[in-house]
């Protein structure tokens, strides 16, 4: 099972955090800080696996990948294959890339909602449900359509816009 997914930048600022086992908010922040302190002490071009027992409890491992200014971190247990997790990070990032056309940190910063939607299509309650990025994109686009369909509705009354355009 996957225990947590964390995306943070190389200064340690979290950009996305998702815990599949409930952790109190302060604990989450502390874990993120600990993970950052481990990651930033690791030299470039070393292996992506870190024993995380001491951070997340027994049987927890951590795999991370460093893309430009971002760390993508997956925390998982013995029910997952190490290299498969590494592939999964790749799937996640590829999907983001397709979604945002050359994804960068700013996309991740400003699209909190959408990135969560993407992640939710890949990982469901800690289990990997979809690894095909085309399938993921399909679902995400459907969901976005549903979201925009409603949000364009009310508040600024249509009449105002029509009034403006008519002028």
């Amino acid at each position: 099972m996957i225990r947590a997914v964390i995306v943070m930048n190389t200064q340690g600022k979290p950009r996305l955090s998702k815990f599949y086992d409930y952790e109190p908010t302060e604990k989450q922040q502390e874990l993120i800080r600990t993970v950052y302190s481990v990651l930033c002490s690791r030299p470039e071009s070393v292996s992506s696996f870190v024993d995380a027992d001491s951070i997340f409890g027994p049987d927890c491992r951590l795999v991370y990948k460093h893309y430009a200014t971002l760390y993508f971190v997956f925390v998982y247990d013995s029910a997952e294959n190490e290299l498969a997790m590494l592939d999964l990070i790749q799937v996640f990032v590829e999907t983001l890339d397709k979604c945002f056309k050359n994804v960068c940190e700013l996309d991740v910063v400003f699209n909190y909602n959408k990135i969560n939607t993407i992640l939710d299509e890949i990982i469901f309650g800690g289990q990997v449900l979809e690894t095909n990025s085309a399938e993921i994109m399909k679902a995400v686009e459907e969901i976005s359509k549903l979201e925009t369909a409603y949000t364009t509705i009310p508040l600024v009354p249509k009449s105002v816009t029509s009034w403006r355009s008519s002028v």
Binding site: L16, T25, Q29
Partner: peptide
Amino acid sequence: NSIYGFDMS
């Protein structure tokens, strides 16, 4: 809550 750790309970 998820990025800055504000309580939302």
